[in-house]
């Protein structure tokens, strides 16, 4: 899993992106949104390219049924998320993966509380505040939901979080058992990753200045 601030990825050549991605990045009217979109997709192509041993610009992507992107013809799973100026990419060689980052600096969205929590949700460590509790549950469930790849069809209220270790969780979706992990980053951002197969080692890579 790689995290970065979008400003640190601004040096990538625009030609790294596909024409379609580049066009989409131009659609953002706010410069910060545009930069973050560029950073996320540049990071995706650069890192996946390194792992697969091909130039990032040559990678081809397609969309699954409900829009989840995947690599064409290659067995490498990935998922992207961004929030504020954070960009995060999760990669798994073995199974579908989902990731979510929330800057978590806004006031607690009261209207979302009832949508985010399952009555029997249990968190590994009781968070300091209701805001933290909300974003912990939210990012974990969003990561699972993005991993499953059915988007909004998966209501958070039906996902129950069950802690398995200090920062780790299990979460059942139908017949599938998803494994998830939650971390709090410097500056208070919440980060969660979920994968269909358990992992022995989660590598967290912090990218500071280009790669």
């Amino acid at each position: 899993m790689a995290t970065a601030r979008s400003a640190d990825l601004a040096g990538f050549a625009p030609t790294l992106l596909s024409a379609d991605e580049f066009d989409r990045s131009r659609q953002f009217r706010v410069a910060a949104d545009r930069d973050r979109f560029f950073a996320a997709h540049a990071l995706k192509r650069r890192l996946l390219g390194v792992l697969l041993g091909v130039p990032g610009a040559q990678l081809r992507f397609e969309r699954q049924w409900a829009g989840k992107p995947q690599l064409v013809g290659r067995e490498l799973h990935f998922n992207l998320s961004h929030s504020g100026d954070w960009v995060v990419l999760a990669i798994s060689r073995s199974a579908p993966v989902g990731v979510d980052i929330e800057q978590g600096d806004s006031a607690l969205p009261e209207g979302m509380l009832s949508l985010a929590l399952h009555p029997d949700d249990r968190l590994a460590r009781e968070p300091d505040s209701l805001v933290d509790r909300f974003y912990t549950a939210w990012t974990l469930k969003e990561a699972v939901s993005k991993g499953v790849g059915i988007g909004l069809a998966l209501p958070f209220t039906q996902l129950r979080l069950e802690p398995s270790a200090p920062t780790q969780y299990r979460c059942r979706h139908g017949d599938e058992l998803w494994h998830a992990e939650h971390r709090k980053l410097e500056g208070g951002a919440h980060l969660a990753v979920a994968c269909l197969s358990p992992w022995t080692r989660l590598r967290l890579l912090r990218i500071e200045r280009g790669i």
Binding site: H82, G111, M112, L115, S145, G151, L152
Partner: peptide
């Protein structure tokens, strides 16, 4: 719709419900 990230869509659906 692609221009609206999933997280925002979830919030927008909640807003619509409300």
């Amino acid at each position: 719709q692609d221009a609206v990230p999933l997280r925002e869509r979830r919030r927008l659906l909640a807003a619509r419900e409300r």
